[in-house]
Simulated scan of single mutants.
Amino acid sequence: MEDDDTTGPAGQVNNFDNQEANMPPLPLYKATVTEAIKRGENIMFTINASKAAEESGCVVLRQHEDIEWLHHNLVTGNATEGVIIPPLPVKPLSDPKSAESMSRKHLGDNTKVMRGDQFEGDCKAVQKYLELMLSHSTFGRDKNLEKFLTEEEAPVRARLNKGLISRLGSAIDSARKANRKDVDDYFQDQRNFANEFSKAVKDASLNYNKLIVAQWRLSSSYRNLATDFTTCTAEMRDEPLIKVNKLMKLVSEGCEDEAGSLELRSGQSELTLGFFLELYARYSDALKDMHFRRTSALVDYESCEKALEKAKPAKKAAAEEAYNTAKKIFETSSEQAKKEIKSFTQQRLLSSAEALTAYAELQMKISQDFYSQLFHTRKHVLELRL
């Protein structure tokens, strides 16, 4: 069936597609995460939500566990056959010890500079997640999403099972079905691409983070050097020492400027290209999970087909019902997966273009701003006669 086909096997119009056409377009709400603040052991996100056609709306406070509960309800409350589920954002660091440990890991144990809270990136990650869910044809009209954005109090959460046994069972099942050859060459090629893409984007994200960390460490070294130049000045007793002190002060200022430039470059890199790579590193797992669920549906379909062929007359009806159900799930999964893959590809290419453009523009602006500062320092050094 083609992606834009809206007719059933008898040539009748598909009622679901017809209903979708008569509904208001997605997204129904616009969500903006304006800030994140610490409240005890939690990070609270301020979310402004308004209907697409309205300027004013609701302001709600939500923590990461609320987002996890929303995600759980969206995934379990909707049919996800063939759906690439937008990934959850990473839980932000909330306690000071974890933040300090992460800072020292990036800057080194001997650093005198500590990185501040990374709440701007956390806000951007939560906002992107909400935008992806609000725009998704499967999740965008879910009432749980509407309540999350509009009700003052967060929904009551239940404890989510994240036990080792469930993860182990999932890993065994995945290993058993992951290498199953597909009956459709298109999906086999797409599965191969998903595996290669996942490896490539995760390597790119990891190595890019290493580059950013190296810039932060270099910035820390510049600040230490600036401090050393400032503290090694001599007492101003005569003209030559006064000139030396001026030179030390100018070099210190240059080191501070270069440190500020590197920190700003690194921070903006994390929010543009780094954010894109980290998001799609997680999204690549969602893509692979979609293929795995479809492959599982294929395995179940073939198992039911074999069971039907071998079924005795007394169990024939039950076997036929199971076969028809498995067949429907597999066909629905395959049809939806083609649409999802096409949408995901377009979204990925558009996001990469936006991220690269924003990265390049910000890097150029930062370079231009700090060039004038460094040029000013250099000019004063050349004018200084010892």
Rank of each mutant, 00 (worst) to 15 (best):
E2S: 00
G11F: 00
N14F: 07
A21W: 09
A21L: 04
V33F: 12
R39E: 08
I43H: 00
A53H: 08
E54K: 13
S56F: 15
V59I: 12
R62A: 02
G82F: 04
L88T: 11
P92M: 09
L93G: 03
S94G: 13
D95V: 01
D95C: 13
P96S: 06
M102G: 01
S103F: 03
H106F: 02
G108F: 15
T111A: 08
K112E: 14
M114T: 05
M114D: 05
R115D: 11
D117T: 09
D122Q: 14
G140K: 01
R141S: 11
K143N: 06
I165M: 13
L168D: 09
S170D: 15
D184S: 04
D185L: 01
E196G: 06
A200W: 02
K202F: 03
N207V: 14
L211M: 14
V213L: 05
W216L: 05
A234G: 04
D238V: 08
P240V: 15
L241Y: 15
I242L: 11
K243V: 04
N245L: 12
K249L: 04
D257S: 14
E258H: 15
R265C: 03
R265V: 03
G267Q: 09
T272L: 10
F276I: 07
L277W: 13
Y280A: 04
T295A: 07
E320N: 01
A326G: 11
K327Y: 07
K328F: 14
F330Q: 04
E331S: 14
T332F: 08
F344Y: 13
T345A: 12
L349H: 08
A353C: 06
A358L: 00
E361T: 12
M364S: 12
K365G: 06
I366K: 00
D369L: 01
F375G: 04
F375T: 03
R378D: 10
H380S: 04
